[in-house]
């Protein structure tokens, strides 16, 4: 294995889980998320000779997010309970509930809003960097982020009302 390949494998092993999860947050679909993460890593590896000394993780993240935002025509789907074992432990049930809540409220956002929320609050990127990665202005990030948070609050309130109604 070439020296660059060994470095790439090390990088990919370290970055895969977060990339897959970020893709899941953006799509709500585990299978689509894995495909997207794999696509991002393919493109990262294809460009590896010129990026591996730079910010490889940032490159893979940008590739992933833009790949998914470009695919906005695909509807967001929800598979909140797939791969959940039949014998559920309490913490698994909690995680399923959390995942269901998370996908429901992210599903209320447009693809661009989801991308900004994931970059800002999952990757903890500053607004200026989110703007660069999505090739939009900082003003667009701020306004979109604000709109997304309003939707999240509304979705959260609706979810709380639904829970209350079920009691």
């Amino acid at each position: 294995m070439a020296r660059g390949d060994a470095e790439f494998v090390e990088f990919a092993r370290a970055a895969s889980a977060r990339l897959v999860h970020a893709a899941y947050l953006l799509t709500g679909d585990h299978h689509q998320a894995e495909d997207a993460a794999q696509t991002a890593l393919v493109r990262t590896y294809a460009s590896w000779p010129r990026i591996h000394d730079d910010d490889a993780y940032g490159y893979a993240r940008r590739t992933l997010v833009n790949h998914l935002v470009d695919g906005w025509r695909r509807p967001m789907q929800e598979y909140p309970t797939d791969e959940v074992p039949e014998q559920r432990r309490g913490d698994v049930a909690d995680e399923v509930a959390t995942r269901r809540w998370l996908i429901a409220i992210l599903g209320a956002l447009s693809p661009r809003e989801r991308a900004i929320v994931v970059l800002r609050y999952y990757f903890d990127l500053p607004e200026a960097q989110v703007a660069r990665e999505l090739a939009v202005s900082v003003g667009t990030v701020k306004s979109t982020s604000s709109r997304a948070l309003e939707k999240l609050r509304a979705a959260g309130a609706r979810a709380a009302d639904n829970q209350e109604a079920r009691r």
Binding site: A17, V20, H21, L25, T98, R99, V118, Y121, L152
Partner: peptide, 10 residues
């Protein structure tokens, strides 16, 4: 939201 995004990492 932040907590949920992290807690559901696989």
């Amino acid at each position: 939201l932040r907590d949920a995004m992290r807690a559901t990492e696989r």
